[in-house]
Design a protein around this nucleic acid. Structure first.
Lengths: 181, 181
DNA sequence: CGTAGTTGTAATCGACTGATAACTAACGAC
DNA sequence: GTCGTTAGTTATCAGTCGATTACAACTACG
């Protein structure tokens, strides 16, 4: 048996990574804890024991995605603290599209009372960070987040990012006009 | 018994309306056909018999939401065929927030093979319509849809629209800067 | 060694869910 | 009125899912 045991900490990290993949595909309600467990190669009850509940697993997954975006923006701002710099960084995140799609699923699931507050908090943190890093006005930040939401939704629709669906006529117009090139 | 029977056509329409409410809250996977049935005041098996499957019910619901947005835009364009006119019409749709949230849930669920094509089709139809109605350039249309996605996501997060959550510090900045006032 | 703590699994449960089938009741044409 | 058609229900099922429990295996340490 080459397989060695991991510490709970390592397993936690690995499970969150697996959850990003799983939740990006099916959303909160449409993903089972067993799917996450299979991706990580552990049993389903163990996932529950580490996170306590499916909801906590999802929250941890969303927090991780938000943290990754924050980290990306901080790094980008160190070189180019403009909205354009952060925008290019966000488009690079399409390479890890699942992260963005998990965030979108979280936003869409904000009606769930157990998730709403955490979701709004996550979004607020991102908004505040962008303004802090760039000093952008409210209007500039609004346009920045609008473009970000468009990119995110197009990613979720499999129109942008890895394994994008074959281009349809209207898409070419929209994609050719995307900002932050 | 005051209750009279409806034609299948009338019931279909009524069920789609109920489904908009239900799916807006829980999304595709997170909503049961029984919840839809209860809102409409019929039995769950009858919902299945009318639509054939839960997936068909959701598709009909998304098509209805898309049609409603199209109708709103056509009406607005008759008076003011500019992006500003359509944008104000879209913000008015926040009064029927569930419609927009259902669309967002559809976009997020595009990874489902049974939904993806329909979702992209719906989005493409909206994009094409806006360009046809307004004659906007690809860049203008891109900004328009970006703003629309922001409004939709904020609506789903219960930050905009009816029964919006109490304002938090960052929100005021973002909401005060929304376009199409 | 042995034993205590930690990692991990198998078994299982109760609740839920979409769908099917069989049945009932209202409506309309003749 | 009676009879075919359509609207709608009750009963039920087979599968799924999150969670609990009890147990097993590995590891560190004295």
């Amino acid at each position: 048996m080459v397989r060695t045991r991991l510490t709970a900490q390592e397993r936690h990290t690995q499970l969150v990574a697996a959850a990003v993949t799983a939740f990006a595909q099916g959303g909160y309600a449409g993903t089972t804890t067993d799917q996450v467990a299979r991706i990580a190669g552990v049993s389903q009850p163990y996932v529950i024991r580490i996170f306590g509940s499916k909801q906590e697993l999802f929250l941890a997954t969303m927090r991780h995605a938000g943290d990754r975006v924050q980290q990306m923006w901080r790094t980008a701002a160190a070189e180019d603290p403009s909205l354009r710099g952060l925008g290019m960084a966000y488009k690079q995140l399409l390479a890890e599209r699942d992260l963005l799609v998990v965030l979108l699923h979280g936003f869409a699931a904000a009606a769930d009372p157990g998730l709403g507050d955490a979701v709004r908090q996550c979004y607020g943190d991102l908004f505040t960070l962008v303004r802090d890093l760039t000093g952008a006005s409210a209007e500039e930040a609004r346009d920045f987040f609008a473009a970000g939401m468009l990119i995110t939704v197009l990613g979720a629709m499999r129109v942008l990012g890895p394994d994008a669906v074959p281009t349809q006529p209207w898409m070419a117009d929209l994609l050719g006009a995307l900002p932050y090139e």
